[in-house]
Design a protein around this nucleic acid. Structure first.
Lengths: 200, 200
DNA sequence: GTCTATACACTGATAGAC
DNA sequence: GTCTATCAGTGTATAGAC
């Protein structure tokens, strides 16, 4: 109970957790849940093997945590998109602009990758799938109103808003995958290209 | 050298290979390269563990083979798209129609999944990445002329044809992923929705 | 809080019987 | 051609020293 070390300890704890998080995102994004090993993770973070288990009680827990971080990041991005003010079409263009900036570059494309790995690889981790579906629903709750508003204003193409939203999100997801394999997509893909999917 | 059994043996061999192929596609699509185990594969095919190694000398070889099958399938689909006759816009609509039929349903969506697993998971299998890139190139060689032709006819939106092709393929890829998790997409997503990405 | 060493289960691959 | 049994290597998780 020495009052001196307490704050420092929390600081150390925070920094180490951050290291694990950063390393885990890269490792899981590259190798998937099964391909990523705790040994690799230890090497990537520069920390010792046993220390990982001091912070997380299992590999599944590390993965769940990283997925959660990725989902929160996506959530935050879409919240900002939903709060943007402007004409219906400006909202669409802003969304595409943000997506290019936030989804196809460095860190953020890894977040998409992580979630993709979680979705495409069968893994029976407790509430993981549910939380992904839940967050996805929140994303649709933001993008669908933008589409409907655009349709009512006559600037967004006719058709089922849900279908359009799914196609749009799928395109972003697919492009994020492409971006990891092939760098420099964010200069080639313009907001106009993405928005054209919704354009009337 | 008994002449009687030869034909039958080949028939057996073919059927067993087919069983492995079918099972492997499902298993690798579900769990990825690392998550799929030879034991699981044996269980999924209903064959014994050792028999798999009679047909393939390693797990990597099974995976390579399955990826190759998936790529051939994609290749064949796009060849047919390239040979379609009609007006520039009819060609676009036909492409979207074929994609919905061939990519979002049962077997074929698994092919997309396999290739995705191969691309998104770091795996140092000899010439795998190269063969995927090669086949992808072939796909672009078919879709880009359709886009350019449409632009010259004034029915496809302006913009870099390569960027449009990447966005279109990425959308298909993303939707194929979506289709596996969420069945019944092929009734919601219409050819008009896909084609709108390219529409002027 | 951080590390090394180790227990235990599982995986890929092989050997050898039928 | 098909199967079971087995080996060597690796993976997760834990124990215990500092």
């Amino acid at each position: 109970m020495s009052p001196r070390g307490k704050v420092q300890n929390e600081q150390m704890r925070f920094e180490t957790l951050d290291k694990i998080e950063k390393g885990a995102i890269k490792t899981f994004a590259s190798y998937g849940f099964y391909g990523a090993t705790m040994k690799k993770l230890a090497a990537d973070t520069g920390l010792s093997y046993g220390l990982l288990y001091h912070y997380f009680k299992s590999k599944e827990e590390v993965f769940s945590h990283v997925v959660s971080v990725a989902l929160d990041n996506t959530d935050k991005t879409f919240k900002a998109i939903g709060e943007f003010e402007g004409t219906p079409w400006e909202k669409v263009m802003n969304m595409s602009r943000v997506m290019i900036r936030e989804s196809f570059t460095g860190e953020s494309s890894l977040y998409f990758h992580i979630v993709l790995q979680a979705v495409t690889q069968e893994n029976n981790i407790d509430g993981l799938k549910e939380s992904i579906i839940g967050k996805s629903k929140a994303v649709f709750d933001i993008i669908i109103p933008i589409i409907v508003e655009g349709q009512e204003a006559g600037v967004v193409t006719d058709g089922n808003p849900i279908a359009l939203a799914i196609a749009y999100i799928s395109m972003i997801q697919g492009l994020a995958v492409f971006a990891v394999g092939q760098g420099g997509i964010q200069t080639l893909i313009t907001p106009e290209v993405l928005s054209n999917l919704l354009k009337k």
